[in-house]
Amino acid sequence: MTIQFNDESFRGEYTFRNSDRAIKRFPFPFHEDSYMYSVNMERHQGGPEGSIYEKRFDVDEHYVSEMKDRALVLADDPLRCQSLPHMTLAGWDLLELIMVSKSEDYPDLFELHRDGNNWHWINKPMGIEQKFVFMDETTLPYGPLEYITRQTQGDFAVLDQRDDNLWMDAGMITTQADWSLDFDIGMNFFEWHAPVPKANEMGIFIRALKFLLNVQQGMPARRLNWTMTVNPLLDTSPENYHKWGIQKTTMTPETVGQKQHLRVELQTFFRLPRSNALVFPIRCYLIALQDLVTVPKWGRRLHRVIRDLPVELATYKGFIDNRPLIVDYLSQFDDGAPTSDGIWPD
């Protein structure tokens, strides 16, 4: 499989662009014309060929540039990647999971050769070749979690399972939608979700937790989450909010199509074998509204979803002030015609 990797930026000049292929495979998250929280979990076991669901860890045209951006974030703030001491074993589990999955799913891009615990990893797109001893941190330039997630798209929260709860005890978080790993590390499932409005009363988190506690080895699950971002900025962290927050106020009716992005997270859940921990990859996909509306069904539907979204959700997702601008823009692409069920283009 050949992928043409972009050379683009997610900050400053924002040269990020989606190719036609990227637009067509974008994970549009709305299966109907309105949105409310649900425990929308399904098995993560493949998907339509070429879709983002097909492989265990999707690699796309943004791979190399996203990893460059991650390295910049970490150089500026190393606290974006932390692992409490008891989570090193889980880090090795994750390293193995990603190396095995990617070398099997993308054999032209990644290779893994194992001779007992002597491993040899080759990452062609990033030009990395590493020999190391599995389970021996002294043979890698970083801890196992940091090492492998510096080479994998998306954020990673690694959750320790104890006392009928999940605890966010390690993570690599550089493309988050506005939450802080440094602040939340050590919290349990209900605590780190505490700021989310409405969902608690709905019992969503109780049901979700019960499902996640029972996710077993070899049977991963997935769901989609979404928000909005102005400019294709990956690092929308609270840490840097005092720098990027101002960008939200810079849109005009002329620029909203180009600057306003729908940001969709593919969240997957894998049970890790040696540590019994649960890894929670959060893979971020961005699309400018002007590209999204080239799929007529998506244009109609997004207009209706954003227009009718409850105030608390639009506020929590950070776009309440820009909502009128967004709805006005999208209304041009909604002729009122009925839309088909499901997320796929017609």
Partner: peptide, 8 residues
């Protein structure tokens, strides 16, 4: 066989 955590 899959590896596992002690106690399984």
């Amino acid at each position: 066989l899959p590896t596992f955590s002690g106690g399984a």
